[in-house]
Every structure is written in structure tokens, then in C-alpha cells.
Design a binder for these strands. Sequence first.
DNA 1: AATGGGAACAACCGCGAAAAT
DNA 2: GATTTTCGCGGTTGTTCCCAT
Length: 229
Amino acid sequence: MVQQEVRKGPWTEQEDFKLVSFVGLFGDRRWDFIAKVSGLNRTGKSCRLRWVNYLHPGLKRGKMTPQEERLVLELHSKWGNRWSRIARKLPGRTDNEIKNYWRTLMRKKAQDKKRGEAASSSTPTKPSSSVHSSISVSSKKHEVDPHASKKAGEESFYDTGGASTQDEGEGEFSMDDIWKDIDMSEENNSFVYGESEEGCNPSASSWEYCYDHLWVMMDEEPYFYALSG
DNA sequence: AATGGGAACAACCGCGAAAAT
DNA sequence: GATTTTCGCGGTTGTTCCCAT
């Protein structure tokens, strides 16, 4: 049998739309099934990743807040590289995001250390540029702002609040539209999302989307709030 | 104005665990 | 109970963007 080649690489808006639609229909569990029926030539794995890290509603985007940064450091010291576990304590953040953040932080630290050593052996007065103090990594790039944008075309696309300003033609819809669309089709019966009993379906990251359209944590109370509150 | 380096983000891969058959 | 399939996690790499020089 001739198998269609599996697509890889960046997702298009059309693909996103399809995926969101099918997750709305079948829930965010049966990835292999969704990958097949949706006609996306993607693996279930790829679909899941895209959903969890990017399309999942309730995701925060933009730079980590100082509280989140602190929490990540604290939890990492406790649990090590248990990214998914750490992510569960930071509502709206994904393990991938935290992992990336941590990696960047460590790299910065390493570099800084190196520079510091080099400086002390040659020109001792030279100040090191960035992160010497452990936490405040807030870089010049993004302010502490959930709406902080990064790449052009992305911010508006995934930021449910923003107007769509995509500049690379092709897709004419935004995530806003996608969610509106889903909402419309689900409007009458909560969020179809998952055929689980209560109309709520525990997702991989232990979030739930319930009748009232509120995302709530499943397993433990959001540590984040406890700490920052 | 051009360019090089660093930071942030997106996505893939491999492996192990859990669930289904 | 054994085998197969699917899912989730952690590690890694590639790409894009921004800032400083």
C-alpha cells in the first residue's frame, strides 16, 4: 500500500485549524486517531505536541514573570528536570517552554561565568553583562507582559485578544476565529472536548476546560498562586 | 545600513510507561 | 500473561528575531 508521506516541520494555519477542529470533536487523547481522520499527514505525536505546546487554550505566551521565574528555579532545585511536573505548577506554561527557559538561563549563566573568569584573569574591572544574580533574567527582549510579542505574525495569531496582523498571506483566519468557530459549534453543549463523563476532559497537562469556559488545574492546587499570593 | 551573536521559540527524536488487544 | 500500540517526557536541534557593534 502506498502510504502518504508524513509531513514534518512548521505547521501552517490551515493545519492548526484542522487540528483544533478535530480536537474539539474527539478530545485531546487519541492522537493517532486524530492524526488519521483529520487528514493531516502528521503523526499523532506531532499533533499532540502542536496542541500541547501551542494550540491549547489557556496557554500564556510571552515572557515569564518574575514569580514564574522564581518558581521554576525553586521547583527545579526540588525536582530536577521533571519539566512536565514543574509545568503543572505554572498555569498556562508548557514543559517545553519551561525547558527552553531553563536552558537559556543555564547557558547564560555558563557564559557569564566564563566571561567572569576570563575577565578576572585579564581585565578584572570589566563588568559582566547579564545574569549574575540568579533569577532576574528579564532580558532586554521581552517585558513582563503576557502579550509581549515575539515573532511577527505570531502574536496576533495566537493571542486571543489581539487583532490579526498576519503579513504572510495564505491563511485568512486567526486563532481567534478558530476558537470562535469551535465555540459556535459547541455552544450548546459545553465544550465537546472529550467525551468524558462530566463534559470535562483531563488533558495531558492536567488542565480542564469546563462548562463555564474556565481552565482549572486538576491534580493539585496551583502552587504558583500559593507562592505568589 | 549591514552583520554577527545571542536569546527565544518551535519542532523532532528516542525511549520508557501505560493502555489496549 | 504476552504482545502491540499509543502516549508522554526529556533531550536536542534548527530557525527566527532582536540588539549591539
